[in-house]
Simulated assay, not measured.
Amino acid sequence: MQPLAQPPRQAPIATPPLLRLIDDAGHAAPAAESGGFALPPLTTLLRLYRQMVVARRFEAQVTALTRQGRLATYPSALGQEACEIAAVASLAPEDWLFPTYRDSIALLTRGVPPEQILASFRGDWHSGYDQQQHRIAPQATPLATQALHAVGLATAAKLKRHSTVALTLLGDGATSEGDAHEAFNFAAVWQAPVVFLVQNNQFAISVPLDKQMACRTIADKAIGYGMPGYYVDGNDVAAMYAVVTAAIDRARSGGGPTLIEGLTYRIEAHTNSDDPSRYRNAADVDVWRGRDPIERLEKYLVSEGALPAAERADITREAEELAAATRDCMTRQATSDPLELFDHLYSPSSARPALAEQRAFLAAELAELAAPSTDKGANR
């Protein structure tokens, strides 16, 4: 049987211009490209720059540790810092973040310690941080499942008349999943206070975007669900911050959900076990390296006189201190208690007798194994 041929496509409608506030060269973009959004204050941009530099140093350190065998795997977000940092910086303390497996720097920026972020990548815990404390759901590996969780939490918050907003991070591949459709549709119908931020890094592992969908942009899908959609330069942290902040404010005031597409690029491999040379051109990677989000903002800040040498030195010091702390925590041998298998499954008031019996059985076996051994053949 012959394989099914790809049907010919009609000529696509021209892609709309990207919404941006700072261009690739580090200059303020023309008003026509701003979509009506204003540049954030210099103090905000300087804070975002610091967070991106620190996050990138963390990524580089973790990637090195993975290559040394300290972690089993790690999906780098190098080049996607603008999307992730802008998203977290836009959240209020009471809001919730629903991340994917690639969004470790988002967790870092929201205050999760490195050893807790990396616990799952090392195989210590499924999720090594306290979700309630940080208002961050577990990092989702199955595509788009966290979008439904975000909508559920946001809907519950609305019913309880809380001011909480849920923001979920997705990749372009996740929008091809049924879970994403259900989340978009439910959120729009029920006007849930949720923001969907799609980091379009242009590859779902090895599948390019044009093999996933025929629409102009992912943001165009928003109109079919009845919610606003924005097509944003995902390497412009100023634009990302302005758009995400506005979407969160809209959700909090009862305006319902928003779909935001941040066009960016995955500079490194899907994970350390991936070989991207099999499915993409190195020349394309070089082009996107030239659109670096950190360098872009740095040029703008320098041109505005907002990045003095002392500030640069302080940012570098903070980044190196974090890298050193990350190395230290990952070179320490992890300790685990097998009895933790039974913890955090139910609240103490809802404990299951069967689990208590299983825990007691395992505890007895562990105690027997830990007891001093005797040489049964010594008296033979």
Rank of each mutant, 00 (worst) to 15 (best):
L170W: 13
G171V: 11
T175I: 15
T175A: 01
E177T: 01
E177N: 06
E177I: 10
G178H: 12
G178V: 10
D179R: 02
D179A: 15
H181M: 10
E182S: 06
E182F: 09
A183F: 10
A183Q: 12
F184M: 13
F184D: 09
N185H: 14
F186D: 04
F186Y: 13
A187T: 13
A187P: 13
Q191L: 01
Q191D: 01
P193A: 01
V195W: 05
F196R: 03
V198I: 07
V198D: 05
V198G: 05
Q202A: 03
Q202E: 11
A204H: 06
I205T: 10
V207D: 03
P208G: 05
P208A: 09
D210Y: 11
K211Y: 08
K211E: 14
K211H: 14
M213W: 12
M213A: 13
M213N: 00
A214N: 12
T217F: 13
I218V: 15
I218F: 06
A219F: 10
A219H: 06
K221E: 07
I223E: 13
G224W: 07
G224M: 05
G224P: 02
G224H: 00
Y225W: 12
G226T: 10
G226Y: 08
G226V: 11
M227L: 15
M227D: 12
P228C: 11
Y230V: 06
Y231F: 15
V232T: 10
V232M: 13
V232Q: 12
G234W: 10
D236T: 08
A238T: 00
A238F: 08
A238S: 11
A239T: 04
M240F: 05
M240T: 03
A242K: 03
V243A: 09
A246V: 00
A247C: 03
D249N: 11
D249S: 04
D249E: 14
D249W: 01
R250W: 00
G254N: 06
G255M: 00
P257I: 09
T258K: 01
I260D: 12
E261S: 05
G262W: 08
G262A: 15
G262D: 06
L263N: 14
L263V: 15
Y265W: 14
R266P: 05
R266V: 03
I267Q: 13
E268Q: 14
H270A: 10
N272G: 05
N272C: 08
S273G: 04
D274A: 09
D274I: 01
D275M: 04
P276F: 06
P276C: 05
S277Q: 02
Y279V: 06
Y279W: 07
N281V: 05
N281F: 08
A282W: 00
A282Y: 03
A283S: 15
D284P: 00
V285H: 04
D286V: 12
D286P: 01
V287S: 07
W288K: 09
R289A: 08
R289Y: 00
G290K: 03
G290E: 09
R291T: 01
P293E: 10
R296N: 07
L297F: 02
L297N: 02
E298W: 08
E298N: 08
K299H: 15
K299N: 15
L301G: 05
V302A: 12
V302Q: 14
V302C: 12
V302E: 14
V302M: 12
S303N: 15
G305C: 00
G305E: 03
A306Q: 04
